[in-house]
């Protein structure tokens, strides 16, 4: 058995899946070949390290922690309003302010035009703003 064929059988050899003849050939090769013995030992080392890591278990409360994070994420998502609402809020505020101003102007104009239409008393027509009236005008009344 040469080195390559011996190394090809390592997995099966470790798992005890080789026939008796092949197993004997592998073992005799390993007894005489330092290279293959080295590789075989490294394979065992690697397998055992991997096995020890595989045996580690996640913490008992991993599932609880995941669900807590999901709850937190969902709550944050609910708190943060959707984007259209974020845009709509200032637009609505501005629109309501503009509407209030417009209503104020309209009401003011209505009042102004109402007061303007009132009839001017006859005596006030006598007053000429261009000249200073004599006090007698009023004194004679």
């Amino acid at each position: 058995m040469n080195c390559q064929s011996c190394q090809n059988e390592f997995d099966a050899y470790r798992q005890g899946k080789l026939s008796r003849d092949v197993m004997t050939s592998v073992e005799s090769h390993l007894e005489t070949c330092n290279t293959c013995t080295g590789i075989y030992r490294q394979q065992i080392l690697a397998e055992r390290v991997i096995k020890s890591e595989k045996e580690l278990q996640p913490g008992l409360f991993l599932s609880t922690r995941v669900m807590a994070r999901i709850d937190k994420l969902d709550n944050e998502h609910l708190k943060s309003a959707p984007s259209f609402a974020r845009v709509l809020k200032p637009v609505l505020l501005s629109a309501s302010m503009a509407a209030a101003i417009a209503i104020g102007i309209v009401i003011g104009n209505l009042q102004y035009s109402g007061s303007k239409s009132e009839k001017i008393p006859a005596e006030l027509t006598l007053i000429d703003d261009a000249v200073i009236e004599s006090v007698d005008v009023f004194a004679n009344e």
Binding site: T35, T37, G38, R41, Q42, L45, R48
Partner: peptide, 17 residues
Amino acid sequence: GELSVPLTDGEDPETIM
């Protein structure tokens, strides 16, 4: 390169682990 050096001659893999 070539793999010529065994890990530790005569040492049990369990100890190495």
